[in-house]
Design a protein around this nucleic acid. Structure first.
Length: 580
DNA sequence: GCCGTTTTCGGCCCGACTGTTTTCAGTCG
């Protein structure tokens, strides 16, 4: 049983406990344990026998360690089995409907034996719901709408899509006079790969409490709104036509920092922070950090003020997942995180020679404009026929053209010849060694042969890693965004061998193609892998996706020294060569 | 169920909005 499954079962148990009206703190401990398990780089199934190893994980104590051992050994655990005799796992679907909480789900079950969405819909249509206490027509309508939306779109939104939507909404909000700042908060600001909804914080002179209502009306009347869900004194929640929910809060400047801190989350980070505040004699809310004895606000204008007043270094939003960042900030041991400015080159991109939209020269100019010192052009090889992949002859001609552009740039930016090769079933690369020898950067892609059994897939990749010309392994970590099924291969084995051979692993910066999550990136670092972050750009615009890749590296606590392409051109090329 | 520079027991974060209510429970973030 892998960590993701263990985490899911613990989380499911938490939800069932909630429906069972159990002690809220006990429920929280299950949720906290689930999150901790999901973040572990080590597979719990492998260390479950070692009692100390499990207890070393924050949030896992004696009871939870026993639960984990049971899950690994039997696939379930006593408490979960007991709850499943009283309730159904499909109730978790009900909890995802807006306005549906544990109390309502419990009521539906005890009164009408409703345990899934189909039954709920049928009961609503048959008029059974109206007989229940607290069920007015409005609530019943809300449930019907919720079911409809759930069926239409129950997924999360990719960070780049959410980012673009946020920018569009922000521009419209900023048209209102007296509004000067719109900041995305929530999981978008923390850089999660996907976001469930959008949190936008707004401030400016028009957001002072006595006059804010006019600005609230402006937001509630934005043209791209499909439906307003809630509207309060300083808050508007609405749905976009694509069903993305947006929460906008309009807040006075004096407490904007506290609000930003609060609404950036994560929830567990905030809980820990507020516990710390109480221990130090403060109470922390979205309105500021206040002294417990006289309610005087001591910090709130900026986030840095709030953290400083609690004796903490400033914590970057990407780190706020309650994974040790507060402890590190308290001891001044947070890492110096990598920034966009640290990246000196992007060495994975395509041109019109295969499936790219722009020429070699256009890509070089665009990279130069973004401040890079070097790029590598890595078009596809022949096995990816649908991309017009290059055979040996065309690949060699392409190298000549790339070198010509390199000359033309006259040292303003270096342009390295490269190729993105395909790995064949027997683990060989699909071009001749003599062709590969002409390339400075050889990226091997592992994204084909989806259907191969995991063991064979792993074997195929491990063999490819032995190719002396291979420089970078692309798509290395076994997870594709928004795809239910992960690639089937042994990630740990692949990373271990890549590390031993000195083959770099690539973190694909483009959210559309990205496959490394922060847990996997941490594992790569722990195993001593060299890591390269590249956009896999298919047009000049896509070079800007680099910032999303950087965000993911920051979430994994990576510093500039952990990443290869923070090096300047010559040093980068030298470092790319496999270890002797 | 977890956790401990006030601890092995007794704590465990905070406020707003909604809908159905005559003072509040439930949900949400």
């Amino acid at each position: 049983m892998d960590n993701v499954t263990i985490a899911r079962l613990l989380d499911e148990t938490a939800a069932l406990l909630e429906i069972d009206a159990a002690d809220p703190f006990r429920i929280r401990s299950y949720r906290r344990a689930a999150e901790a398990v999901e973040q572990q780089t080590q597979q719990l199934a492998e260390i479950a026998q070692d009692p100390k190893a499990l207890l070393a994980i924050p949030g896992i104590g004696k009871g939870m360690a026993a639960n984990v051992r049971d899950l690994v050994a039997t696939g379930s655990m006593p408490l979960r089995d007991e709850l499943l005799t009283k309730y159904r796992p499909t109730m978790l679907d009900l909890l995802r409907l807006p306005g549906m909480g544990p109390k309502t789900v419990a009521l539906l079950w005890s009164a009408l034996e409703i345990s899934d969405i189909d039954a709920l819909e049928a009961a609503a249509k048959a008029g059974h719901l109206a007989k229940l206490p607290r069920f007015g027509q409005k609530l019943i309508d809300k449930i019907a709408k919720g079911i409809e939306d759930y069926r239409k779109n129950s997924g999360r939104f990719r960070i780049d899509d959410a980012d673009e939507t946020a920018a569009r909404i922000a521009a419209l909000i900023l048209e209102f006079p007296g509004i000067d700042t719109v900041t995305p908060a929530g999981s978008l600001r923390r850089g999660r790969e996907t976001v469930g909804d959008l949190d936008l914080l707004v401030t400016g002179p028009a957001c002072e409490p006595d006059i804010v209502s006019a600005a609230v009306e402006h937001v509630a009347g934005l043209p791209l709104i499909s439906q307003v869900i809630a509207k309060g004194q300083n808050k508007v929640s609405f749905l976009m036509r694509n069903n993305l929910q947006v929460d906008v809060r309009l807040l006075p400047r004096a407490t904007y920092g506290a609000a930003l801190q609060y609404f950036t989350g994560s929830k567990m980070h905030n809980v820990s922070l507020r516990q710390r505040a109480i221990k130090q004699g403060f109470t922390l809310s979205e309105y500021g950090l206040a002294r417990l004895d006289d309610n005087a606000i001591v910090a709130g204008a900026t986030e840095a003020d709030v953290y400083a007043a609690l004796g903490l270094d400033y914590i970057a939003p990407e780190l706020r997942e309650n994974c040790g960042e507060i402890e590190a900030a308290a001891t001044y041991t947070l890492p110096a995180l990598i920034t966009r400015a640290d990246i000196r080159g992007d060495v994975h991109m395509h041109t019109t020679a295969t499936d790219g939209a722009d020429t070699i020269l256009a890509m070089a100019e665009a990279a130069l404009a973004r401040g890079y010192g070097y790029i590598a052009i890595t078009d596809h090889s022949k096995n990816l026929a649908m991309t017009n992949g290059l055979d040996d002859a065309r690949a060699l001609e392409h190298v000549r053209q790339i070198r010509a552009v390199d000359q033309e740039m006259n040292g303003r930016i270096r342009v390295f010849p490269g190729i993105e090769v395909d790995i064949l079933l027997d683990g060989s690369l699909d071009l001749e060694d003599s062709t590969l020898a002409e390339m400075d950067v050889v990226v091997a892609s592992i994204h084909s042969h989806f259907g191969l059994p995991a063991e064979q897939q792993t074997e195929r990749i491990l063999r490819a890693l032995g190719n002396p010309y291979l420089r970078i392994l692309g798509h290395p970590t076994g997870r594709i965004l928004l795809r239910r099924e992960p690639y089937a291969f042994d990630l740990d084995k692949v990373l271990r061998k890549a590390s031993a051979l000195g083959v770099a692993v690539e973190h694909n910066a483009s959210p559309a193609r990205a496959d490394l999550n922060d847990r996997n990136l941490r594992l790569a670092k722990e195993l001593g892998c060299r890591i390269s972050v590249n956009t896999d750009a298919h047009s000049t615009d896509e070079l800007d996706k680099m910032r999303f890749g950087i965000t993911q590296l920051r979430r994994a606590w990576l510093s500039p020294s952990d990443v290869l392409n923070t090096l300047e051109a010559d040093a980068f090329l030298a470092a790319l060569r496999p270890r002797p």
